[in-house]
Amino acid sequence: MQRDLAALREKDWVSSQTIDELHQELRQRLQQVEQLKEQLVEENAVLRERLVAETAGQDIIGAEGGMREVIHQAAKLAPVPVTVLISGESGTGKELLANYLHRHSDREGPLVTVNCAALPAALIESELFGHEKGAFTDAHAQKKGKFELAAGGTLFLDEIGEMSLEAQAKLLRALQENEIYRVGGTHAIKVDVRVVAATNRDLQAEVAAGRFREDLYYRLKVAELHCPLLRERLDDLPALAQFFIERYAEKLGKPVVGIAPAALELLAEHNWPGNVRELENTIARAVALAETRVLGPADFSLGSTPARGGGSTSTEAVHPDVGTGESAYAQLLRACGVETASAGRPASWETVTAACERLQLETALLRYKNQKEAAAALGLHPTKLHRLVKKYGLKGGK
C-alpha cells in the first residue's frame, strides 16, 4: 500500500491532498477489517462453547446417591431466571452442572464461560465488559465483552472466588442494574444475561476474611447447588467408569468394553482427591495401556490414598503386612515408583525424596484445574511449581 501511494505521488495529475485522503481512508478500512476479525474470533469461540455444551452427551452421568438430589434441585432451578452459585471441590463437575442449567433453561442465547482464575486482574474487566477503541495502549479496535456475547443466554463465571475486589464491585453493579460500561466507554449498555458462578472456595470464609464482598456473595447466592465429592457418591462409580471407558476406547481405538468387579472394588477403595477429573484421567490411562477387553485390578495404579482405614503404627511401618507380606515402607516406595536394590536395604535419600516429590506434584495436578491452584495448595510459588513440573516432565494444569 505504501509503494502504491508513493507511485501516485510521482504523478503530476494527483494532488498530495488526494493521496493523503486515500491514505487515511485505507487506514480506516484496515482498522475496520481488524475489528471485524476480532469480533469473528470472539463469536467463533462462543459458537464452539455452545457446540460443546449441546453435544456433551448425557446431562450428568450416574446421577445416583449424593448427586441425585443435586440434579433434582438443578432441574427445578434451570427454567427460573435467577443467579445460581455452584460450590464444590475441583473436579466434582461444577461446569457440567452449569451446562445442565443452561441446556434446561428457556434461554435461547449461548453459554459463555469465563475462568476468573486464569485472567490477570488487569484484564478481567475488559474480558467481562469489553472495551472501546483507544481505551488503553493495545485497544486498537472496539471489543465486546463476555456479558454482551452472552446476550439472551448464560454467563458462567468459573472460580469466582479468584476475582479481585475491584472487579467484584463492577460485577455487582452489572448484576444489580443489568447494564455494563465498556472500558473507556461513557454510555451504559443494557444486558440480558443469566449469571451462574462456581467456586471451590468457602466464600463465607472469604467474606469473613475481607477477600470477597458480602453484597456480591448474597447477590450470587440467590440459589445454591453443591457438587459432592466423588468419594461421597461411590454409587455413581460403575456408571462413571463405564462412560469413560467407552469414551476413551473410541477415542484411542482400543477394544476395551468394560471393567471387572474386582477393579471396581479397587477404585472404590481409593480416596479420589481429584474427584471425577482424576477418575477420568485414571480410566484414560488404563484404557491406553490395556491389553485385554475388560479392565482388571492390574490395569490401575492408584498410589497410596485409600478411602478407609487409619494411620499405621510404628510397628506396622517396619514389619510386613500379614495379608501382603509387604511392609508399609515398601508399600510407600512402590506407590512412589521406587524399587529397592535389595530387600531390607533402604533406597537412597535422593531417590525417595524425588519420587515422593513427584507423586505429590502428580496428585496436586490431578486435583486442581491449573498450576496456580496446585501451587497454592502445596504452599509453593507458581514459578517454583512450574520448574518442578518441567523437571519431572509432568503434564497437567496450565
Rank of each mutant, 00 (worst) to 15 (best):
L172P: 09
A198Y: 07
L149K: 08
N271H: 14
N115H: 14
A288Y: 13
E246G: 12
V318Y: 06
S327T: 15
A209D: 10
A6G: 12
G396F: 01
P346I: 01
L51Y: 12
T92D: 08
G393Q: 06
P273Q: 12
L51K: 10
A167L: 10
Q168E: 05
P382A: 01
H72N: 13
E54A: 09
R48T: 05
L77M: 14
F136E: 04
L394D: 00
D215H: 06
V112K: 12
W272T: 12
A151Y: 01
F212L: 05
E373T: 10
G393T: 05
A268Y: 00
L385C: 01
L172R: 10
H131Q: 04
Q204W: 08
G88R: 11
L361C: 00
H131C: 03
L96A: 13
E21S: 15
Q58E: 15
V70Y: 08
L22Q: 12
N115E: 13
T340S: 14
G310N: 12
Y392I: 05
E250F: 00
A198S: 13
Y392D: 08
L22D: 04
F300S: 02
S327K: 13
Y218W: 11
I160A: 10
L30R: 12
F244W: 05
E10K: 14
V196L: 05
T154Y: 06
E125C: 04
R358L: 02
L97R: 08
T363G: 07
L101Q: 02
S348P: 06
L229E: 11
V41Q: 15
V183Y: 14
L175T: 13
P273W: 08
Q168L: 06
A268H: 06
L366E: 13
L240V: 01
A6Y: 11
A262T: 08
A286E: 01
A377Y: 11
L380W: 09
H140T: 03
P120Q: 03
Q73E: 02
P79Y: 06
K398H: 12
R9N: 10
L51T: 09
I160E: 10
Y248I: 00
F129S: 07
A78F: 00
E159L: 03
F129R: 06
E132W: 00
V33F: 07
N99F: 09
G185P: 11
N370A: 12
E280M: 05
R247E: 01
L203V: 07
A117K: 11
E339I: 10
C116W: 10
Q28N: 13
L5I: 09
T199Q: 04
K390H: 14
L171S: 05
H226E: 11
A286F: 02
I259T: 02
L8D: 03
A347S: 11
K133H: 09
T313N: 10
A249G: 15
V338K: 05
S348W: 03
G62V: 03
V294L: 12
E49P: 03
V256K: 03
W349Q: 15
L123Q: 11
I283L: 10
L266T: 04
G396M: 02
V338S: 04
S126H: 04
P81S: 05
A249H: 05
L388W: 01
Q360S: 14
